Amino acid sequence: MTQTWTVIPDLHADPARLEATLRMLEPGPLAFLGDFIDAGASTPCPDDAAVLTRVRDLVARGGVAVMGNHELNAILYHRLGVDGVPLRTRGGKNAAQHRSFVEAFGTATPAALEWTDWFLSLPLWLDLGGLRLVHACWNQPAIDVIAARRPDARLRAEDLAEVAAKTTPFARAVDTLLTGPEIALPAGHGFVDAHGHRRDRVRIAWWRSAAKTWAEAALSVPDPAQLPIGPLPHAPEITLYPADAPPVLIGHYKMQDAPRIEAPNAACLDYPDQPCAYRWCGEAVLSERQLVTVQPGA
């Protein structure tokens, strides 16, 4: 008999969202898609410690979890390289991203290092037998590169300086799984993102296997009219998820509007404005009937 899993996406230090989600779920094993930490501006009462303690307990009692990019960033932020310099720059945008975690645990304190040790124990991906989980992108070539060194999908301390530098195939493969693919727009093209910054690279919705054009494949572009007209180029960064592959669930992308299933075998569950979870019962074709939407105050 196929085991069922309830899959919960990015929590970002929001214990109210976590508890509301848990109250709406049927009993059964839980799977988490990472990004437990680092509250955003919209989180009313952030509590990294509460979320982490609850999730770690649920994992210890039979749940599973994969690492998110915020967990990897925290691992690097709180550790030094052999030169004594932090593996992730402290200050500026990075300090702002990690503010709620640092306010809870400090910087490179025993408590911060204890939690980041736990983050390091999380796999980069999971195959649960008919269901795949990864934080941002299931990219088989990248997984193969990592698995050749780390077949259990877990990073080691000796990998961290390489991963921080992002210059080797192994490091770039890790980055692909945790942040997803981006490609450069053609010369002369760009768009303004939701924060008013002009961008010349665009995120690609790799799970849309039928996507042929820039508009069909691009993510996080407020005005699609700013995208090039025409087909996507053939680029090594783009590996669209095969239509005959097992179903995969991801977080990471801060999708807009109501939660939905965009492809029969791949779905992003990260909808910050309308949180959701997915109840997987062995189906090879994902269904919106299995989405559990979380009501505020539930």
Results as ranks from 00 to 15, higher is better:
Q3G: 01
V7R: 03
V7A: 04
D10E: 03
L11N: 08
L11C: 15
L11H: 13
L11V: 07
P15G: 07
R17V: 14
E19N: 14
A20K: 02
A20W: 09
R23T: 08
P29W: 00
L30H: 02
L30M: 02
A31V: 04
L33R: 01
F36K: 04
I37Q: 01
G40P: 06
A41T: 12
S42R: 11
S42N: 11
C45R: 12
D47H: 05
A49H: 09
A50D: 03
V51F: 13
L52S: 09
R54I: 03
D57H: 11
R61E: 08
G62Q: 01
G63Y: 00
H70S: 10
H70G: 14
N73M: 12
I75C: 05
I75H: 00
L76I: 13
G84L: 07
R88K: 14
G92Y: 05
G92N: 12
K93N: 12
A95N: 13
Q97I: 14
H98C: 04
R99E: 15
S100E: 11
V102E: 12
A104Q: 11
L113Q: 11
E114K: 09
W118L: 10
L124D: 04
W125G: 13
L128P: 08
G129L: 03
L131N: 06
R132N: 09
A136R: 02
C137A: 10
V145G: 05
A147Q: 11
A148G: 08
R150P: 11
R150C: 11
P151A: 13
R154T: 08
R156Q: 11
E158G: 03
E158L: 05
D159N: 10
L160M: 10
A161L: 05
E162C: 06
K166V: 09
T168N: 08
T168F: 09
V174K: 06
G180L: 07
L185D: 00
P186R: 04
G188V: 02
F191H: 00
V192K: 00
H195E: 07
G196F: 01
G196V: 00
R198G: 00
R199G: 00
D200A: 02
R201W: 00
I204Q: 07
W207C: 11
S209T: 08
E216C: 12
V221T: 02
V221H: 00
P222R: 01
P224W: 05
A225P: 01
I229T: 14
P231I: 11
P231T: 10
P231E: 10
L232D: 06
A235K: 06
P236I: 09
E237N: 07
E237L: 10
I238E: 10
Y241I: 13
P242F: 10
A243H: 15
D244E: 14
A245K: 01
L249H: 09
H252K: 03
Y253G: 04
D257H: 14
A258D: 15
A258F: 12
A267N: 11
C268V: 08
Y271N: 06
P272D: 06
E283H: 03
V285R: 10
V285N: 02
L286N: 07
Q290F: 03
L291Y: 01
T293H: 07
V294Q: 03
V294R: 04
V294C: 09
A298P: 13
